[in-house]
Design a binder for these strands. Structure first.
Lengths: 217, 217
DNA sequence: CGGTAATACTGCAAACTGCAGGGACGAGCT
DNA sequence: AGCTCGTCCCTGCAGTTTGCAGTATTACCG
């Protein structure tokens, strides 16, 4: 049986469609683009192109650059065809993985300080991603640098808008969560008090309490 | 060597801290809570409690409910202690996985219709999650239902605020992306035109183009 | 009396991750 | 001349996680 094409395989194939890359370059390119919508380990990114070769969707050639060898992968016509077919299949639903949010949900296992730290860490992590996207946009405008694939700029820029909207949503929530937690005497036992009930009522009406509700005391 | 505690193990342990559950109940409870911040397969959720038992963090007892047997897991003191220690460790950075966003980034592998469909599918999937959270909030206010663990309501409600902020951010972006794509003659070859440059400049200044910029024509 | 759904799991192959390891090269330091 | 440090360029392996198939009982509906 031939190996199965996963979404990760198609993601790598799509990168290969931009230009030929060595395994090493590919993992680093993926770190800059895939990371924001399809995060995968470096290890997998080294393995996928081999699978693509076995399936006839790519070819390898070994290059020797001064004693150091590298494997350069190139997409084939069959590979481009497979990509086109992928574009017409149903996408899988989006998934968010956040240990900090998980900690928040089960914050009564720890102290208020633990909760505060989890929020700080989330802010730090999101802030780092946020800055890196803003910097990337600045580099697209730079006269010397510019976009690595200028005629694809519309896709990566509108894609970046999605990231920044999500980061901003996270940051707004962190503020909100901090101001709520500030009035809790402890992580446990607050329950459905008047304020929490008011927030729940807004949510049940699909309204946002963030920035709308007066901060409590 | 004893098995290693992963974040998933702690997540299951935290659910077990609420009350004892059977494996079956646990997987269904997890589907309603973990899903939004730490999505894991049903299969894993059946395996984790066994590991917790091997580590002494939980105990099992077999119950016979009318010929049908079930394994009920209960947290131990050692388990509660482990939970407390988990609360003080560094959280891992948040990660988003969205095949629809991935498709958008590589939309030039397909047609404009493919792109539109990917956005429709994302809207559908996010809408479903969005509605399920709103419904959950309504059930917390219901006189008959209420919150399953009333004194934990503050945590799950503020947690739900995060979900809804993120869903709204997604939905706003989908609108924006659709209106941008509407003026593209094709998925490929638009590149850094005046409008995309204007958006890039806003992003590089960390401003949001969503709802700010006039819709094009 | 048969069909479908819900209850309540387990086994297994395949996908994916993290870490360790291993050479070769270039730059900078002593 | 020899040394370390960082970057280049991957591979092997053990362990985690997923998806699917399979199993067996009870409950409800027509």
């Amino acid at each position: 049986m031939p190996p199965k094409m996963t979404t990760s395989s198609y993601a790598v194939l799509a990168i290969l469609d931009l230009r030929p890359w060595s395994g090493y370059e590919l993992t680093h390119q993926a770190k800059r683009s895939l990371r924001y919508a399809w995060p995968r380990s470096e290890r997998l990114l080294y393995s996928e192109p081999k699978k693509l070769v076995r399936l006839g969707y790519a070819t390898v050639r070994k290059e020797e650059v001064g004693g150091r060898s590298r494997k350069v992968y190139t997409i084939t016509d069959a590979g481009r065809e497979a990509l086109g077919e992928w574009a017409s299949t149903r996408t899988s639903p989006p998934q968010l993985e956040s240990e900090a949010l998980l900690r928040f949900l089960f914050a009564d296992s720890g102290s208020l300080e633990d909760l505060g730290r989890a929020l700080d860490e989330l802010e730090e992590d999101v802030g780092e991603l946020h800055r890196s996207v803003v910097d990337l946009m600045a580099s697209y405008l730079d006269e010397d640098e510019g976009h690595p694939f200028p005629d694809r700029a519309h896709l990566s820029v509108v894609f970046a808008v999605a990231q920044l909207e999500l980061f901003r949503a996270f940051e707004r929530w962190i503020e909100f969560a901090r101001s709520e937690a500030a009035r809790w005497p402890d992580t446990a036992g607050v329950g459905m008090d008047d304020r929490i009930r008011a927030i729940t009522e807004m949510l049940a009406r699909d309204e946002s309490p963030v920035g709308e509700l007066e901060p409590s005391e």
